[in-house]
Structures are given as C-alpha cells and as structure tokens.
Amino acid sequence: MEDISLHILDVAENGIKAGADLVKITVEENTQTDRLVVTIEDNGRGMDADFLARVLDPFVTTRTTRKVGLGLSLFQQSAQEAGGDLTIASTPGVGTTVTAFMSYRHIDRKPMGNMVETMLTLIEGNPDCDFVYTHISNDKRYVLDTREIRCELEEIPMNHPEVTGLIRDNLVSGLQGFSAE
C-alpha cells in the first residue's frame, strides 16, 4: 500500500464484509506528542479468540474465512516500520476494533494519502453502511457522520451522485489544512 488512506480503506472493507452496518474511522495526528493513531471500529460479527490470535499472521490466515487476508498484516508492517504497531480487539457478535499507531515524524511513516477518496469509495460502494469519520489534527477536528445525512435523505440512496458530490465538497473543505505534508 502506498499510503495510510489505502490501508484504512482496506481494513474498513474487512469490517463491512464481516456484516457491519456502522464503521467508525478515527485519525488522530498530534505533532506535539509525535503520534499518529488510526482506529477503525466496526460492528460486524467479530472474531473469536482463537482466530484473533492468528489474524495478523499472513501465512496462517485462511482465505476461506473471508474476514481478513493480507491486509491487516500489511498495515501492521507499515506501522512497525514507523516506530509503532497495530493491535486488534474483537468480540464475537459485537465487532472489531483495529488500532494502528505510528511516530508522526518517523522517516519511514507513510504519507496520510487521500482520505477524501477513501471515504467516498467506502460510502459509494457500501451505501447501506454508515460511517463516522473523525479526523483530529492537533487542535483541529473534523467529523463526517453519514447517519445525519441518511436521516435527511430518507429513501434516496446515499450513493446518489449529487449526494456523494455534497459529501465530497464537505470532506474537501472540512479537511483543509489537515495533514501538513
């Protein structure tokens, strides 16, 4: 993966494949503490302790489970290369939370990438799933909550081109000045 936004897209898709209808994505950039934390929380079917113990091993993970493949181990590798790590907490029937942290200024930290495209791809490709995207950059904060939009739209699909257009505008203007890279 070229950047962190692609890892986020990948892990969020895992959650949706696991039956989630709500995925919460949080990105916290803190240049003072030199930390970048990414959290992806889904309310999908979750994993039992046995599977959870093996889930980060790319050679043990079985494709037939369809819960995860190489994606999580790639994200973990990216985090470890940037002085951090990736952890997973999961409860069957409740959901899964993936947390990756990195040293913000680490020379090998991948760039944030394009979170606008990641969010639009998730929303467009999964119109029945809701997303809460929170991006915190030092003292700035942006939140996109598709539940608020869905509430107004009623039966109009979330992936209607005009709706995704509004969401794109909202993301672009809301994220202005974030991720100074």
Binding site: L144, I149, E152, L153, H160, L166, I167, N170
Partner: peptide, 17 residues
C-alpha cells in the same frame, strides 16, 4: 459535522422523488 446543508439534501430528495 461541518455543514452539509439540510436544504441541499432536501432539494435532492424532492427532485429524485
């Protein structure tokens, strides 16, 4: 959440209906 205008969403809804 920064402003996605409710009015804009309503307009889309009415037009689509």
């Amino acid at each position: 959440m920064a402003k996605i205008s409710i009015d804009d969403l309503k307009k889309i809804k009415e037009r689509e209906r």
